[in-house]
Nucleic acid binder design. Structure first.
Lengths: 205, 205
DNA sequence: AACAATACCAAGCAAGCGCTTGGTTTGTAA
DNA sequence: TTACAAACCAAGCGCTTGCTTGGTATTGTT
């Protein structure tokens, strides 16, 4: 099971849009623009131009601009939840699972879907209350995986800190990498995962 | 030297605006609104209404809307740099200084100036390139204090991780508290500082 | 070939935006 | 009292925004 095959499966199940179709291409472009300029500073004209159509034609594919933002967030969560679930299956011990979670989240944020993940983190406020609730539901599934592993670590005596607090600190620390991490820099994502594990006193895996 | 007296001194030196004057009151209101709704979603009419004047009258105090954002950020950095410098002076060992830094940053983010700090972190993109450069200069002074203490810790063998990486992770983790921390919750800022120190393996101070 | 559904364009509307303008009030000091 | 600057108001300009509308290609199905 490769990341590509997971993506393909989700497209098959219509849980996310085909990246080669107009809708999928627009969502990718939207993620890039939303991250670069922010949701508010990105106009529907920008979005339309990014895939070579007129601004009015956008509204054939989406009901509103906010709908585009929501779709970006939904599909990003769905995809990355599945990728993380897959990463977890490969790991057997709690410490290995923790490594897999951190590595998976770093990949989500700094890899292919990074732009969309950044949008998910930083454009939260631009969603209406209703849309926020919908996204939050999807997010709960994702967060539950983290809390389960952190709970295992605590039970196993590998960690003394509160799982909830630890997760919140990690959310901030890992999300923040999007603002400074460069793949062509001195370390890759594996290195960084090791270093974060070491910081948490989970060095020997 | 209390926080209030530091504030008073900075006002005296005209490094930040008098909070009781029109300009200072506007900057406080702006910080609140920018954090609540974001810079782009906040209109000059909102800002003016917040201190009970007409929207046009704003431009007697500030040249542009962006100028208001920049002023919020500048004054926030100046104030919190001084507060942190003061906190550092009270501490004698590297571990104590580290505790002071974390505690000070948590206070900046979740205390009185929290709204402005959140703006500083999350509205970065809304500044023009020139303005970003100006703010960055002020920020460098602040960051240098962190790196010095982290360097001391490493030299003293209290920490093995890279100071730069550690600071970046901490920036994310501590900034993120603004999205979830509530003062009326189960822990205060002292508790949280202890827990963060423990996570980093600096438990015994 | 005929038809319907899908995808798109060209034009523009109503509303809201940051900011300007010309003029009035308020505060201060001689 | 007079003089003058700082602080503010009322009105609105020019522009951009998200979105709508009516019509035209394009695509897929039978």
């Amino acid at each position: 099971m490769t990341p590509q095959s997971i993506l393909a499966e989700l497209v098959e199940e219509s849980r996310i849009s085909d990246p080669t179709g107009a809708r999928g291409r627009l969502l990718r472009a939207a993620a890039r623009l939303f991250r670069e300029k922010g949701y508010e500073r990105t106009t529907v004209r920008d979005l339309a131009a990014a895939i070579g159509i007129q601004s009015g034609s956008l509204f054939h594919h989406f009901r509103s601009k906010e709908d585009i933002l929501k779709a970006v967030m939904e599909e990003t969560i769905v995809l990355n939840t599945e990728l993380m679930r897959h990463a977890l299956r490969q790991a057997s011990t709690p410490v290995e699972r923790m490594w897999a979670l951190i590595r998976s989240e770093l990949e989500s944020i700094n890899g292919q879907t990074g732009e969309a993940m950044a949008v998910l983190v930083f454009e939260w406020r631009s969603l209406s209350g209703d849309a926020q609730r919908d996204i939050l539901k999807l997010r709960d599934v994702y967060e539950a995986m983290w809390l389960e592993v952190l709970g295992e670590l605590k039970s196993a005596g590998k960690m003394s800190a509160d799982p909830f607090l630890t997760r919140r600190m990690l959310t901030g620390a890992l999300s923040w990498t999007v603002t400074w991490y460069r793949p062509d820099g001195p370390r890759n994502l594996d290195d960084m995962t090791d270093e974060v594990m070491a910081m948490l006193g989970l060095g020997e895996r």
